[in-house]
């Protein structure tokens, strides 16, 4: 193809590339910083001026996952040699791994991480599932006062959720829902539901209802038609809505901080709580943060094609 470029285009292209790189760099810098800190030796992490080049080590991650105590007496040479590499790394930092019956004890981080996963995944599935069904109802049936209902659904998002934190906390305490997975799941599902209903309604509205009517005429029930025709057609919408819901639930801090303390505590309130105990171990916190970023990154990466089509929705399809 013959390249027909105007002068503005010839100049504009490199300029826009530079601008994109610059903006990307600004957005990615905190991630780079937290990522590099996670691999820094402890003294390097807090050096002033910051160290850019260093010998990376895995020790912060070992520390993240193990329960540790200050060394009162140095291990003997035999003990040190017999220890696996990760235990040696802890010894090197002047600490020892706490063991029960010879087995190393895990830190609280993995359980907090799993709590986050449980709460986020379950609440996302619930919110998107219920949201899709609700949106389908609004999209396809004559619901009396549909606009009022939709406004009402959206109005739950019109005030910052933290405003209702105290009454919510009191209610949760009465019902015994504080520090439970179920409690957080209910909360996050409620947050995301209105959002899911609105987003999914837009997507389902775009699917011609003729498809389902054809399926009805072809001998299927409404539910079968929904399952066989509407659901496959709304995969893009479901993917986009799921990502947004998941991110909101995964990153939620305020309610997790108020409603959970131990058993059901999620990672966001847990990670900063580690700063408080003794000298802040920035490298360990950074390691925890890096791992915390991974699920969202993986989830988004897996659904990236749908997400791109989902967020530019309306611009691409007629």
């Amino acid at each position: 193809m013959a390249a027909v470029t105007s002068r503005a285009q010839r100049i504009g292209r490199p300029v826009s590339i530079i601008a994109i790189l610059l903006v990307t760099a600004i957005f990615l810098f905190p991630i780079y910083w937290i990522g590099s800190t996670a691999f820094k030796p402890r003294n390097v992490a807090t050096s002033v001026p910051p160290t850019v080049f260093f010998q990376p080590e895995i020790t912060p991650f070992v520390k993240l996952f193990t329960k540790r105590a200050q060394l009162r007496e140095q291990p003997t040479q035999e003990e040190y040699d017999a220890a696996p590499w990760w235990e040696q790394a802890i010894y090197d930092g002047g600490e020892r791994v706490i063991k029960a019956r010879g087995e190393p004890l895990l830190s609280q981080y993995p359980s907090r991480f799993i709590n986050s996963l449980i709460v986020s995944v379950v609440s996302t599935v619930l919110a998107v599932g219920m949201g899709t069904l609700t949106a389908y109802g609004f999209s396809r049936f004559r619901v009396p006062g549909a606009d009022d209902w939709l406004f009402f659904i959206l109005s739950t998002r019109m005030l910052p959720p933290v405003v209702v934190a105290i009454p919510m906390f009191l209610m949760y305490r009465t019902f015994g829902l504080t520090d439970t997975h179920v409690g957080l799941i209910i909360l996050y599902t409620a947050f995301n539901l209105s959002f899911a209903v609105w987003l999914m309604r837009g997507f389902i509205d775009e699917i011609p209802k003729e498809y389902e009517e054809a399926a009805l005429v072809d001998g299927y029930t409404r539910i079968q038609a929904f399952y066989k025709i509407v659901l496959p057609e709304s995969v893009t919408g479901i993917a986009a809505t799921s990502i947004f819901s998941f991110i909101i639930a995964w990153n939620e801090y305020a309610f997790a901080l108020i409603m959970t303390t131990r058993r059901a505590q999620t990672a966001p309130p847990f990670i900063p709580s580690q700063i408080g105990s003794g000298l802040p171990e920035w490298t360990v916190i950074a390691a925890g943060t890096v791992l915390f970023l991974l699920p969202v990154a993986i989830f988004t990466f897996l659904l990236r094609n749908h997400l791109l089509r989902g967020v530019t929705f309306g611009a691409i399809r007629k």
């Binding site: 003729e210 009517e213 005429v217 072809d218 299927y220």
Partner: peptide, 13 residues
Amino acid sequence: VAERDVALVLQQY
């Protein structure tokens, strides 16, 4: 709809 056993052909979609 299914019980009526009719076939429907539309203009599109």
